[in-house]
């Protein structure tokens, strides 16, 4: 079993990428050493009225330095993520991780892959793009303004879609795939449920292996509270019903394994 750690992490840097989108590097020691793309960490606020950890996906992992990068969205005024966004270099934050299973890298080795991110599902695709060994087509979807685009361009063939048509294909990630006549034999995706649902359907039509990273409200982050379940085709290992735990059995699932 993979090791998880709860520790205090020092903030190495913080920058605002776009209004409401922040990028933070953390000195996370052993958590960074254990982490794989697609995993997440629990981040704890210092506010005793906000008790539950915020699950945030890993955008980059620097094993040598023991650093982790998270790129996250501030979800509103006076939220936990807003508190995170106000932290500066040298501040400390309580974190736990690495959590979840991550994207299977072996499955994509030497294959032609789509790495698809949508909205705040974009960040975890960056570390995956850096680590995956194969032909990578990186397709990112944004509502309007874009972030992390330069970093994606350095790690594969980059395509983008915007809902307002301000850059790349006007529409969604599947529109970008069609417009550029792209093909793949494996898909990795992270993003909002409607996007994942459409990708799952696309993968099934084309008979492509597809891994999706799911999201659900979480409490413990380690598989005990059973809050973050998703409906699964197979009987789950915990309760022997059809409820896989996003935090522990996922967040990455085979698209054919889960209902979206």
């Amino acid at each position: 079993m993979a090791c998880k750690f709860k520790r205090t992490a020092a903030i190495v840097s913080q920058e605002c990428l776009l209004p409401g989108i922040f990028s933070m590097w953390l000195e996370a020691g052993e958590i960074a050493k254990e982490a794989v793309p697609g995993q997440f960490i629990s981040m704890y606020t210092k506010d005793k009225s906000k008790l539950l950890p915020r699950p945030i996906s890993l955008c980059e992992i620097d094993k040598e330095k023991g650093f982790l990068r998270v790129v996250y969205r501030v979800t509103g005024k006076d939220t936990g993520t807003e508190q995170f966004s106000r932290m500066v270099k040298g501040d400390t934050i309580e974190i736990m991780g690495p959590l979840g299973n991550g994207f299977p890298l072996d499955a994509g080795k030497g294959r032609k892959a789509f790495l698809i991110g949508g909205g705040i599902g974009v960040p975890p695709m960056l570390e995956l793009a850096k680590q995956l060994d194969g032909e990578k087509q990186l397709i990112m979807g944004y509502r309007d303004k874009q972030f992390l685009t330069e970093e994606f361009e350095q790690n594969g063939a980059f395509y983008l879609a915007t809902e307002d048509g301000s850059a790349g294909t006007k529409g969604n990630v599947l529109d970008a795939i069609r417009e550029n006549s792209l093909t793949a034999d494996i898909i990795y995706a992270c993003g909002p449920s409607p996007m994942l649902r459409a990708i799952k359907r696309y993968a099934e039509e084309k008979q492509i292996v597809c891994y999706v990273s799911m999201e659900e409200h979480m409490a413990c982050g380690i598989g005990a509270c059973l809050a973050c379940v998703c409906k699964s085709k197979e009987v789950d290992g915990h309760s022997h019903v059809h409820n896989k735990r996003v935090c522990k059995d996922g967040p990455v699932f085979l698209s054919t394994e889960v209902e979206i």
Partner: peptide, 19 residues
């Protein structure tokens, strides 16, 4: 075995949670 309730199953409240 019990399937439990549909999601979302939890929410944070001030100084606590609701499940």
């Amino acid at each position: 075995p019990w399937e439990g309730n549909p999601t979302p199953r939890i929410a944070e409240v001030h100084g606590g949670m609701m499940n």
